[in-house]
Write a protein that binds this DNA or RNA. Structure first.
Length: 907
RNA sequence: GGGCGAUUAGCUCAGUUGGUAGAGCGUCCGCUUGACUUGCGGAAGGCCAGUGGUUCGAAUCCACUAUCGCCCACCA
C-alpha cells in the first residue's frame, strides 16, 4: 500500500525535487545527432540585476519561461535555458554607495578611490548573486546552471570590447561633444530613455530683456544669454530680427542679438526667448545651427560656476534662482511671476536625481550611418532595427507593440554609451597625456571623464584602442552603459566572438520573454547588437537576429492596480513569502493564470491561496487514484483493450480534447488559457465526475493510472513540483521532467459514448438541483422515473451512476410513459425526469415558476422562429449555423410542449 | 500635443474568423456522501461604459463621446 499524506506539503518536496533534477543533469540540453537549430529550443534568461532581491517581475518571467522550457523539453527538443546576472552599473554602484554612506563614508568615490570602491561593490555582488541563484532555484526554474553567465565576466568583456572596436573601425562610434543628460546626484550621464518625467509645479518668471519680454522657469541658467530668438512669422517681433541691442541684465549690460527661427512657438510664453546652449537640448540644437558659442553655467555638482558669477557662483540651483529673481526685481526687470506653472521635471529613472543637461564629450553610436550589409544594401542601425520586425523575422507578442517599437526607432537619436561610473566595462580607449596631466589625473581619487575634459586630454588624434606601449597613457575612466553589454546577451553567452558549436546550434534563440517596460532599453538593443555583430561575421541575415519571438509580459500590480513598491507593505507581495506560505506551484499558477501578454495583472494573496487549494486538489486526486490502482497495472503498459465502460470512454475523450487544446495554446503563447483548461479538466471533470464514478464496482484501475499519468505530464510545465512529487509514486526510476509530452490519439476518442455520459451528468445535476430546491435531506434516497425516448438504451448503461450520484433508491427508465401526478418534473433536452415527491412540493410556487419558464421559452422560441423565417438569415448564415438553429428550434418546441403538459398535470 | 490600451456578475478577469454571456473569489442555502473543510452539492447575481453605424444577427467590426491607465514627445 502506498503511504501518501492527505495534504500536500510543498516544503517537504520542493528542495529535494529541485536537487534531484539538477543532479541528474535534467536541465542540460540533450546531445542531438543533427545540430540544427530547428531541433533546439533556447531561451536566454533576462539576467536579474545583481543587486539582490527577487521580485514578482522576476517570478513571473521565471514561471513563464520555465513553462516554455519544460513544454519543449518534454517534446524532445534539445532545450537550453541560460541563466545569469547583470552587473547593472548605475543601480549597483548607487546601492553600494548608499550603504557606505550609511556606514559614515560621506563621499565614497572621493574617499575610497576607484580600486577600493570597486572592491566593495564586488564583495556586495558576490553575496547578492548567491541570493539570486537560490531564489531562481526556489521558483523551480529548470535552467542550465553549468552555463551560468554574468555580464561583467571576462568573456563578456572580450565580447563587449570586440563589438566596440568593430563599431569603432566602422566609424559607427564617435567621441563627441553633445548635450547629454547629466545626473548631478549620481554624477553620470544617462541615456535618453533612462530619463523619466515627473510633473512639478513651479514658478514661471517674465523678465524684461531689452526689446522683448522673455519667460522662463530657470532664471539661474540665463547669466550669459545674449541671443534672442523669435519666430520670423511673428508680426510682433519680425522687425527686430538681425538687430543688436544693449540690454540691462543680471550682472550689468550685455550685447544681445535677435535671430529668427521657425522652432519658436508664438503662442508659448511671450513668443520670444533667449537661449542657453549648455543646459537645454533645444537651445543646443539652435546653437549648432547658428554657430552660437556656449558656456557652461552650472557645474557637474549642480552649482553655479564660480567663474561665471562672483555673486552667485557656488550657489545651489534653487538658491541662485531666488537670489537672481530678487536682484532682477530690484532692477525693475521682473514683469510678472506665474505661481502655478506646471511642467515636467526630468529625472534619472535610477535614483531620481534631477537631470541637468550638460555639454560633454561622450561616446556615441551613430544610428543613421549606413554600414550594415543587410538584404543586399548598406543600411543603418535604424533601418535594420526596423526591418527585423517589419519583415516578421522577429515577431512581437502581442503585436500591438510593433507600432510602439517603430515609433521609438523613428525618434531614436545617437546612443550615448559612456557612463561616468566605475562599475562596469571600462571603455577600451587610451589617451596620450603629458607628464603633468598624467600626474594630476592620478592624484585625484574621483576620476571621471570630466576630469579629462578639464585637463584637456582626449583629443581625437591621441586615441588608441588597445593599451599602447610608452608612458603617460590614460585609459578612459568611464564605463559602458549597462545596456551596451547586456545587448550582447543572446550570443555572447554562447561564446561569441569565438565561433563555438553552441553558437551554431543554439542561436538565434527562440523566445525572449521579458516585461514590456524594457522593450527599448534591452530588447531593441539586443536586436541592434546581434544584427550588427553577426552580420559582420558573415552569417545569413536570418541567423543574425537574437531571437525569433519576443514575448512581453505585463507588470504585476497590487489589488488596487497600483505598482507594487516597498513603500506600501500592506499590498506589496514578496514572492519568497508566498512560496513559504503556499508553495512555489501555487505562486507560479497565480502569476500565469489571468495574465495575458502585454497587459498588467493584479495580484493579491487570496488568489495565491486559491491556487494552493488547487495544488492540494491535484495532490488528492493523485492520492485517491494511487490508492485505487492495482499493483499489476503499474507494471503493464496501457492499451486500448483496457477501455471498458462508457465513463472510461468519456474521460479519455475529454483528455484527448484537452491534449489537443493545451498544445495549441502553448504553441500560441496562451499560457493562461492552457493552465485554465488543465485546471478545469482536473477539477470539474476528472475529480467531480470520473473519480466519483470510480467509487464502486465499475472502477477501472488501468484507466485511472493512464489518465493520472497524462494529467501529471500536462501539469508539469505549470506546477513542476507537485506533479513530480506524485510521479515519484508511480515511477521510482524516471523523473517526470524527462517524460514525453502527451500526444493526441484518435483511437481514444469515443463520441457516442461520451455524449451519453454527458447526458447522464446533466440528468444527475438536474435531480440534484431539484432535491436541493425541495429541501430533500442530502442522505435521503428518492425514486425517479425517467422517460428518455431515443436515449433510453444508452442511458441504461448509466443506471449505476445515476442511482449513486443522484442518490436514488429506485430508477424506472423507459422510452416513454404516462404523466405522473404530483411529481416534480425536470426536462432535459427531450427527456422527462419525474420525481414523485408530492409531500414536499409547493404546488403554487411550482406553478409560478413554470409559468415564468413557459413565458421565457415562448419568447425565445419566437425569436428562433423569426430568425429561421428571415430570408436574410437563410441567405447569409452558414449551413452549420442554420442547421444548429433548426435543431435548437425543434428541441425547444418539444421542450415547451412538455412544460405545458407539466403545467396541466399540476392542475 | 501624439499614440496605445482598458471599460463584461459585488471583486479579479476570460470570452481565439460576429450566431441565446463564462470562470475563480465573495455572497446565500445545505452537507463529515469510501482522496481532498485547502472539501462536497445547490442557488442568486450581467440592457457586456454611452450614442450612432455596418449586418439577417454585434460584448465581438466601424465612428464618436465619457472615465481610467500607460507610453512617447516636450513646454524656452
Amino acid at each position: 500500500m502506498i503511504n501518501i499524506e492527505p495534504a500536500y506539503e510543498a516544503k517537504k518536496y520542493e528542495n529535494k525535487i529541485y536537487q534531484k533534477w539538477e543532479k541528474s543533469s535534467s536541465f542540460k540540453p540533450k546531445k542531438l545527432k543533427s545540430k540544427s537549430n530547428k531541433d533546439s529550443f533556447v531561451i536566454s534568461m533576462p539576467p536579474p540585476n545583481a543587486t539582490g532581491i527577487l521580485h514578482l517581475g522576476h517570478a513571473t518571467m521565471l514561471a513563464l519561461q520555465d513553462i516554455m522550457i519544460r513544454f519543449n523539453r518534454m517534446q524532445g527538443k534539445s532545450t537550453l535555458w541560460i541563466p545569469g546576472t547583470d552587473h547593472a552599473g548605475i543601480a549597483t554602484q548607487s546601492v553600494v554607495e548608499k550603504n557606505l554612506q550609511k556606514q559614515g563614508i560621506q563621499n565614497p568615490r572621493k574617499e575610497l578611490g576607484r580600486e577600493k570602491l570597486l572592491k566593495e561593490i564586488k564583495k556586495f555582488v558576490e553575496t547578492s548573486k548567491d541570493q539570486i541563484r537560490n531564489q531562481i532555484r526556489k521558483m523551480g526554474a529548470s535552467c542550465d546552471w553549468t552555463r551560468e553567465k554574468y555580464t561583467l565576466h571576462e568573456d563578456m568583456n572580450l565580447a563587449v570590447n570586440t563589438l566596440f572596436s568593430r563599431m569603432y573601425k566602422d566609424d559607427l562610434i564617435y567621441h563627441g561633444s553633445r548635450i547629454v543628460n547629466w545626473d548631478p546626484k549620481m554624477k553620470t550621464t544617462v541615456a535618453d530613455d533612462e530619463v523619466e518625467y515627473v510633473e512639478e509645479k513651479t514658478k514661471f518668471y517674465y523678465f524684461k530683456y531689452g526689446p522683448v519680454t522673455i519667460g522662463t522657469a530657470r532664471p539661474e541658467t540665463k547669466f550669459l544669454d545674449k541671443i534672442i530668438v523669435v519666430n520670423p512669422k511673428d508680426k510682433r517681433f519680425k522687425h527686430l530680427i538681425g538687430k543688436e541691442f544693449d540690454v540691462e541684465w543680471i550682472e550689468g549690460k550685455v550685447k544681445a542679438k535677435v535671430i529668427g527661427d521657425e522652432c519658436v512657438d508664438m503662442k508659448l510664453g511671450t513668443g520670444a526667448m533667449t537661449i542657453t546652449p549648455a543646459h537645454s537640448l533645444v537651445d543646443f540644437e539652435l546653437s549648432q545651427k547658428y554657430k552660437i558659442e556656449s558656456h557652461q553655467i552650472i557645474d557637474f555638482d549642480g552649482k553655479i560656476r564660480k567663474d561665471v558669477s562672483k555673486e552667485f557662483g557656488g550657489m545651489d540651483i534653487l538658491e541662485a534662482r531666488e537670489k537672481i529673481v530678487e536682484k532682477l526685481q530690484k532692477k525693475g526687470l521682473v514683469t510678472k511671476i506665474d505661481e502655478e506653472y506646471v511642467h515636467n521635471l526630468s529625472v534619472n529613472y535610477r535614483g531620481k536625481g534631477t537631470i541637468e543637461p550638460q555639454i560633454m564629450k561622450q561616446w556615441f553610436i551613430d544610428v543613421n550611418k549606413k554600414v550594415i550589409q543587410w538584404k543586399g544594401k548598406k543600411r543603418s542601425i535604424k533601418e535594420v532595427l526596423q526591418d527585423t520586425v517589419k519583415s516578421k523575422m522577429i515577431e512581437i507578442v502581442p503585436n500591438k507593440f510593433d507600432k510602439i517599437y517603430f515609433h521609438w526607432i523613428d525618434n531614436l537619436r545617437d546612443w550615448c554609451i559612456s557612463r561616468q561610473i566605475w562599475w562596469g566595462h571600462q571603455i577600451p580607449i587610451w589617451y596620450k597625456a603629458n607628464k603633468e596631466q598624467y600626474q594630476e589625473f592620478h592624484a585625484q581619487k574621483d576620476v571621471s571623464s570630466y576630469n579629462l575634459g578639464i585637463l584637456g586630454i582626449g583629443k581625437e588624434s591621441k586615441f588608441s584602442l588597445t593599451k599602447p606601449t610608452g608612458n603617460y597613457w590614460i585609459q578612459d575612466p568611464d564605463t559602458f552603459d549597462t545596456w551596451f553589454s547586456s545587448a550582447l546577451w543572446t550570443f555572447a553567452t554562447l561564446g561569441w566572438p569565438k565561433k563555438t558549436p553552441e553558437l551554431k546550434q543554439f542561436h538565434p534563440t527562440n523566445v525572449l520573454e521579458t516585461g514590456y517596460d524594457i522593450l527599448f532599453f534591452w530588447v531593441a538593443r539586443m536586436i541592434l547588437a546581434s544584427t550588427y555583430a553577426l552580420r559582420k561575421d558573415k552569417l545569413a541575415e536570418k541567423d543574425c537576429i537574437p531571437f525569433k519571438t519576443v514575448y512581453l509580459h505585463g507588470l504585476i500590480r497590487d489589488r488596487h492596480g497600483k505598482k507594487m513598491s516597498k513603500s506600501h507593505p500592506e499590498t506589496c507581495i514578496d514572492p519568497l513569502d508566498m512560496i513559504e506560505k503556499y508553495g512555489t506551484d501555487a505562486l507560479r499558477l497565480s502569476l500565469v493564470v489571468g495574465s495575458t501578454p502585454g497587459n498588467d495583472m493584479r495580484l493579491y494573496e487570496e488568489k495565491i491561496a486559491g491556487y494552493r487549494n488547487f495544488v492540494n486538489k491535484i495532490w488528492n486526486a493523485g492520492r485517491f487514484a494511487l490508492l485505487n490502482i492495482d499493483a499489476k497495472d503499474f507494471k503493464t503498459a496501457f492499451t486500448v483493450k483496457n477501455v471498458k465502460t462508457d465513463n472510461d470512454k468519456w474521460i479519455l475523450t475529454q483528455l484527448q480534447k484537452l491534449i489537443k487544446e493545451v498544445d495549441v495554446d502553448l504553441n500560441k503563447y496562451r499560457f493562461s488559457d492552457a493552465a485554465n483548461k488543465v485546471y478545469e479538466f482536473i477539477w470539474n471533470q476528472f475529480c467531480d465526475w470520473y473519480l466519483e464514478e470510480s467509487k464502486g464496482p465499475s472502477k477501472n484501475s488501468a484507466i485511472l493510472l493512464f489518465v493520472l499519468k497524462n494529467i501529471l505530464k500536462l501539469l508539469h510545465p505549470f506546477v513542476p513540483f507537485v506533479s513530480e512529487a506524485l510521479w515519484s509514486f508511480i515511477d521510482k526510476k524516471n523523473q517526470l521532467i524527462n517524460e514525453k509530452w502527451p500526444e493526441y490519439d484518435q483511437r481514444l476518442v469515443f463520441k457516442k459514448e461520451s455524449s451519453t455520459v454527458e447526458l447522464a451528468h446533466q440528468i444527475i445535476t438536474g435531480i440534484r438541483s431539484a432535491r436541493s430546491e425541495l429541501k430533500v435531506e442530502p442522505n435521503k434516497k428518492i425514486s425517479a422515473v425517467i422517460y428518455a425516448a431515443n436515449s433510453t438504451k444508452n442511458l441504461e448503461s448509466q443506471r449505476e451512476n445515476l442511482m449513486k450520484l443522484a442518490r436514488l433508491e429506485s430508477l424506472e427508465l423507459k422510452y416513454h410513459g404516462e404523466k405522473i401526478k404530483n411529481a416534480k418534473t425536470i426536462i432535459i433536452k427531450n427527456i422527462e425526469i419525474h420525481l414523485p415527491l408530492a409531500n414536499l412540493i409547493d404546488f403554487a410556487k411550482e406553478k409560478v415558476k413554470l409559468t415564468k419558464e413557459i413565458e421565457s421559452k415562448t419568447t425565445y422560441l419566437n425569436s428562433l422562429q423569426n430568425k429561421l423565417n428571415n430570408p436574410g438569415f437563410l441567405k447569409n448564415a452558414s449551413k452549420e449555423v442554420i442547421q444548429k438553429e433548426k435543431e435548437r428550434l425543434e428541441l425547444e418546441k418539444e421542450n415547451l410542449v412538455k412544460l405545458k403538459e407539466q403545467m396541466q398535470s399540476l392542475n
